[in-house]
Design a protein around this nucleic acid. Structure first.
Lengths: 223, 223
DNA sequence: GTCTATACCCTGATAGAC
DNA sequence: GTCTATCAGGGTATAGAC
């Protein structure tokens, strides 16, 4: 496999960011070229049309998903259940690092293009399936720490719903509060599934609830 | 308050649908006018620019939210906790009725325009706040059936995350499975919070898990 | 309030030299 | 592979009669 052109890469990365920030339809080819320091000649040398760049972006997102999100979560965290929360922590950091300017690449493109671009819908569908499959694997590794009747596929889809919805709320509200609250509730659900929920009168209140306004650099492990 | 023009209304309703289907940037003024059977003269009589129609759409969504979603859920369902699931059932029906072609109006516009249109972000933020406030009120009415240490605001935000993420997945996958799975998990969470979870060996398996492929017209009360 | 006709700009895309 | 120059078309928005 030949080494990838740097210009092509810059175009794909730039487009990924711009699409996540302001959507596909609102992002002009000119804007992409400018920010990627490429000219029209280069652009159309690599991509016959804007839509082809879009498909390349989706491929790039797919690679990033495993390479930078799910893979590192698996390798960096031993406990399989904690891996789920490490994945969520990635998106939390993403929100903070981008100052809420970017949404989930999968989610944004899914919302905008699912109906009008069948190929995009299909690829996003696969991305969602890959995401949930990896999370489902984490859940499987948890073995008997979770109830035997639990639908691991469904729980993984629930985790994805939580993530996408939480990122969306955080972005619109420009606050981590709804994100942290969503993850805290999901944490409590996992605790209850494992029969390990703490009751309010057994421990200090400070340990059972997440403060409504967590500092932006708060350690996510407080979840 | 003067009676609203029918043409203006048609424009707003049509735009709401088109924006939810294919996004704001991908929807042309021409397309809106055609589908609403209005001409350029009418359009610009009511709205100085496309963006003003967008703001009107957001207002309309806000009215619909209470008038057609949260209000009916409150009036049509006695049990406050069931009201939460009645709200989710509304979105399920919405997905089915539109054959997955439309996403959540709030969510779609939030994802696409949060960064580029501050006014839109602000309005969507208020819509999210109104949505969660009403759901939070349902939770408050549940009284001591939920744990006293529970963060009702956070749980309401969690429910919204679930809804938005589940709608997004269902649309991209063109399947109710991820939506139903998400709601089933949320249901189980509520059951556990109330200390009423059923164990797999106490009841027939058919009652504790949702079939992966529920028929599209399945009664949502099976949740 | 609604109609037709039209201005005008910006967009995606092309051509052809280097 | 990259550059500059340029096009054709669709997009938003306007003018002015009715």
């Amino acid at each position: 496999m030949a080494r990838k052109s740097t210009t092509r890469d810059r175009l794909v990365r730039t487009a990924t960011e711009l699409f996540s920030r302001q959507g596909y339809g609102q992002t002009g080819v000119n804007e992409i070229m400018q920010q990627a320091r490429a000219t029209s000649g280069s652009f159309y040398h690599f991509f016959p049309a804007k839509e082809d760049l879009l498909l390349a972006v989706l491929d790039h997102v797919g690679e990033t998903l495993h390479g930078e999100v799910l893979g590192p979560a698996a390798e960096g965290t031993e406990d399989p259940i904690e891996r789920v929360f490490a994945v969520l922590a990635y998106y939390r950091r993403y929100l903070v690092d981008t100052n809420f300017a970017l949404g989930s690449p999968m989610g944004n493109l899914a919302a905008e293009l699912s109906e009008s671009h069948p190929q995009v819908r299909s690829k996003v569908s696969e991305l969602f399936a890959a995401w949930t499959a990896e999370v489902e694997a984490f859940l499987g590794e948890a073995g008997d720490r979770l109830p035997p009747d639990l639908d691991n596929t469904g729980l993984a889809e629930f985790v994805l719903s939580t993530m996408e919805g939480a990122v969306m709320q955080a972005r619109a509200r420009r606050s981590l509060a709804p994100f942290d609250a969503s993850v805290a509730q999901l944490r409590r659900y996992f605790d209850l599934l494992r029969g390990e929920d703490v009751k309010a009168d057994e421990v200090p209140a400070s340990l059972v609830s997440i403060p409504r306004k967590a500092p932006q650099n708060a350690d996510w492990r407080s979840w």
